[in-house]
Design a protein around this nucleic acid. Structure first.
Lengths: 209, 209, 209, 209
DNA sequence: AATGAATGAGCCTTCATTCAT
DNA sequence: GATGAATGAAGGCTCATTCAT
């Protein structure tokens, strides 16, 4: 993705700060001045290194995906030796953990969720790089449980049904925080939520198979 | 674009245009000048009728919920004489229809989805007036299928599992449009998607009961 | 002055409120809306009754002078039977009391002080109506103490010297409030200040005579 | 109009123009656009250099005091070797000269007089840095003539009596211009006025001592 | 006669961007 | 190559005023 990036520290600092700030404030509310100040670089640096605020955003988005995948690889769920039911549980637990990570890494998924909810021109690249592989992995698991071909409509629909249950905790977090805060209160609660999604989805898949 | 029938009072025209523009551009990118121009009123009208851009947004949001509920009432799903399984199907079909309505009303759900993804101060009011009733209705249906008390954690989690499958078509529409466009190609496809969510969820609920 | 004023209650209320608001906020900071709201009349009333905000100001100024003179006549100081030294004391006490009156009447002198510090076109009329008579009265007193003709330069200069000591409490009140608040703390303090000005001025006049 | 020598830095030009414009129009009526236009700089410069219109005003006020004191230092009046009666005369002459300086510097005292008549948040700072020293100097002189302690009420009252006679030429200049223009017609007249204030005050102080 | 709705000019401020160094 | 100064377009908002009723 970021093939043409010089490896200068100012450039990198700018990129990391941009992920955080864009994730926190959104594209419009984030200001170039704020990003530069937080990155300890000159105000003109964004235009110098990235040509424009918009270009910085696109790069930051690509960087966020790259980092999210580097830091949260779905290794266990890819193990073809495990039974698909167990792989499903691992996938969901891992994916939900990534989404709800409120540490520094949380910025990555937050920025991505923003981009999906309000796509810009940058989305198409991103889908190919980061979403398609996740979809492929989950497709593989579902297809084995349902015992149907990869490209069947049912597999695709079940894929969305399962993905959506995880994504809700990101997209509708504001609602969950207000109505059902106990479901994401701490790590144990999040693990229980992952377990529920797994059981709910397994029961559904078994019933539909 | 809503037809700006000049007979309509300026206040109403402003409100309808605001829903459109805020849905399309978001709060920050939308400009008062643009809204006023599209509504064929003076630039000062927003401040005259609504006191501020922020207050206009809050009113537009409330109006969007009101309109969405008025045009897609959940009457059938509330019928206590029907079996809960059928009520669930009706609820999902209606809810998905409301979310994917690309006619004039599509703006309403788009604006609402934006607000949930990036909450402003206006969200709290909205949750109470518009979301809580929907949650209550679905809770009633689930609780009857599961035969569990209203407030059990399981009921709440299943509620989110079902809601999320519908909401994904709104929040992640950009992804679906690109990867699985056939699932929302036309009204028949949407109906089939609703049917899938219903079957998936019913199988899950039966399995968990 | 206000010969063409209709005697309607709305008109009068507007005028009285205008004196207060202009005195408190100044011409620019005062808003027509605020004045109309406080006077319980329509927003358009100012333009209807007075043609413009500026014209309302001019009328309010004239009204303030008229009221100030009507409510604070310098009767005692005009008594030719009293010795001029006593008349000087009466004049100063009375004048200072009028200037420092913080009750409703205080608005009149505050508005007038504003006009003198930052004159508008309205000032010339005002000087003839309200200031000249005061100057004449004080001139008469001084001239008798100094035993000089009315129009001597010395009389004029002493007039200003005495007037200025009183006016300072109005024009530079902000400074006095901060550095010597004890000089205007209460009615007794104000009376003592008047007494000082009288003694200071009498001593000066005696010395110069 | 100050000569906008283009060699001067934009910051300085802005400050000098601000003194002029604020003195002429007052804080509210003065516009940032006008100031920038007169200073030949961009409209955004005020916010760039001074953060806000209000901050520019505060700086302009401080600058006015600084300039007024730099150009009219009270050196002679501070000379402890001179008799206090002579020092009083020097102080009054200098102070009145500063107030009535109609050259370029007239803007300074006009701005200051405005601020005292209609104080803003900026006044408190100004009092400490600019007024207190003047008061201290005059207090020293008066106390020596009266032979009383610095902090006696009488000294304070006499201080105000003397100050006020000078200030009147600033605050009530509009009235003097119309009724007694001969008192400030030219430099000689002003010197005569200063002489009068000195004699009047000395006679008073002697009488009260 | 008197009003309330509606207007438009103009204000301060923000911000991404540019330019000379 | 990299910066800090400077810009200009645009945004939300206020307010005296006008106009139809």
């Amino acid at each position: 993705m970021i093939s043409n990036s010089p490896t200068e520290p100012a450039f990198d600092r700018l990129l990391q700060v941009a992920v955080e700030v864009f994730a926190h404030d959104g594209f419009r509310d984030a200001t170039v001045r704020d990003i530069c100040a937080k990155a300890n670089v000159n105000v003109a640096s964004v235009n110098y290194y990235f040509r424009s605020k918009e270009a910085l955003y696109a790069q930051a988005l690509a960087f966020a995906f790259q980092e999210a995948n580097r830091l949260h690889p779905q290794d266990a769920a890819q193990d073809q030796n495990l039974p698909p039911e167990q792989r499903l549980g691992l996938f969901i637990t891992h994916f939900l953990g990534k989404l709800l990570d409120d540490s520094q890494l949380g910025f990555h998924s937050k920025l991505i969720a923003r981009e999906i909810a309000e796509p810009t021109k940058a989305l198409d690249d991103i889908i190919q790089t980061a979403i398609v592989p996740q979809f492929a992995l989950l497709t593989d698991i579902i297809q084995k449980i349902l015992n149907r071909p990869d490209n069947s409509l049912l597999v695709r629909r079940c894929l969305l049904s399962i993905f959506s249950q995880c994504l809700m905790f990101k997209h509708s977090r504001a609602v969950i925080d207000r109505l059902y805060p106990e479901l994401i209160a701490d790590e144990a609660a999040i693990a229980a939520s992952a377990e529920h999604i797994t059981q709910f989805s397994l029961a559904a898949l078994k019933g539909l198979a």
